[in-house]
């Protein structure tokens, strides 16, 4: 089940948990043996602490949810001093999702994380839709993404995964720009920008009006984008967006993903990640795939 994403990031299987949906892993140890997972990607962290947006921060939508948490986190130095010592010996890959509002913050944050022996990779968040001067400003243009990825690349020596925003016209172009600037892999999709209104009160349901849509409802969009990006780039693609079970995960791999992340589904079934690992294994046995990596991009489109 091993997946090699390059530059030292080797997963024991293709299943990781998505940033912002799995805390620091500690929140889920009653339900999941972390040693069964390919990796966990911890909460989006910025150089400086952030209190995030005011309450209310979520609204349920058909087969999904909107959130506008706004990158609440205690900052990279707190992570390094307090959280890292608690989680560094988890028997799985612990990736840090790094976000920022300035180029300088990204670079300083990446330098600090580079020094952490047990963090094999950064997932660079250039796609959070919930922060005004947030990473998404970098993630929606080819020049923006090229700039932030190349600057971080200069100081970060381990695996650099770049998480892409779906809120763009041509995601494959953005992915190519990240690849050219030195990304080792791309993960997609982050949440789709959305909105919910309480008609009775004539008010938005979220404190900052708009938020990021996630959950099963975004899967078809995510799958299409993974397919487009995987055709365009030569680096591994990590697929996410509405994956709720092993079949969903397999679909992303067929579309071209080398690994997958499970996000919002962790809220509904806290043990879903391990079920997906088992289900992918079953699928491979049933379909005669000796190695799970052979699933990647094996979608048959000859008659399309």
């Amino acid at each position: 089940m091993t997946i090699d994403l390059g530059r030292g990031l080797v997963l024991r299987n293709p299943v990781m948990t998505a940033s912002g949906t799995f805390g620091y892993g500690e929140e889920y140890t009653d339900f999941v043996d972390l040693a069964r997972l390919g990796g966990i990607i911890v909460k989006g962290t910025t150089l400086h602490p952030r209190e995030g947006n005011p309450y209310p921060r979520m609204a349920e939508t058909p087969s999904g949810m909107l959130n506008c948490v706004g990158l609440q986190n205690k900052g990279v130095p707190y992570f390094v001093e307090t959280i890292y010592p608690r989680i560094k010996d988890f028997d799985t890959n612990v990736l840090l999702n790094l976000s920022g509002s300035t180029l300088e913050d990204y670079v300083k944050g990446a330098e600090m994380v580079d020094a952490l022996e047990k963090i094999p990779a950064i997932e660079l968040n250039v796609s959070c839709p919930n922060v005004k001067q947030g990473g998404m400003a970098f993630g929606v243009t080819t020049s923006g993404i090229a700039q932030v990825v190349s600057e971080v690349r200069k100081v970060y020596h381990k695996h650099l995964m770049v998480k892409l925003s779906p809120n763009v016209t041509n995601i494959a172009e953005i992915a190519l720009a990240a690849e050219s600037a030195g990304a080792d892999s791309v993960s997609l999709i982050n949440t789709l920008m959305g909105m919910a209104i309480d008609a009775e009160r004539r008010r938005p349901k979220l404190s900052v009006v708009t938020g990021g849509l996630s959950g099963a409802c975004v899967k078809p969009v995510a799958l299409r984008m993974v397919w487009q990006v995987a055709k365009a780039v030569h680096i591994p693609v990590v697929g996410l967006g509405g994956i709720s079970n092993a079949t969903d995960a397999v679909e992303f791999m067929l579309a071209g993903a080398s690994a997958i992340e499970i996000g919002t589904a962790n809220f509904i079934d806290p043990a879903v990640s391990v079920k997906v690992v088992n289900g992918i294994e079953d699928y491979c046995q049933r379909h005669g795939f000796e190695h799970v990596a052979s699933l990647t991009g094996s979608l048959k489109t000859d008659n399309c």
Binding site: P56, R57, M58, F267
Partner: peptide, 27 residues
């Protein structure tokens, strides 16, 4: 009883303003 998604302290949606900052009602 703030609106929440995960109930486990992961999604950070159900926060209440406290003397220690935004804390999850669920956790």
């Amino acid at each position: 009883e703030n609106l929440m998604a995960c109930g486990l302290g992961a999604c950070l949606c159900c926060v209440e303003d406290t003397v220690d900052g935004h804390l999850c009602v669920c956790k």
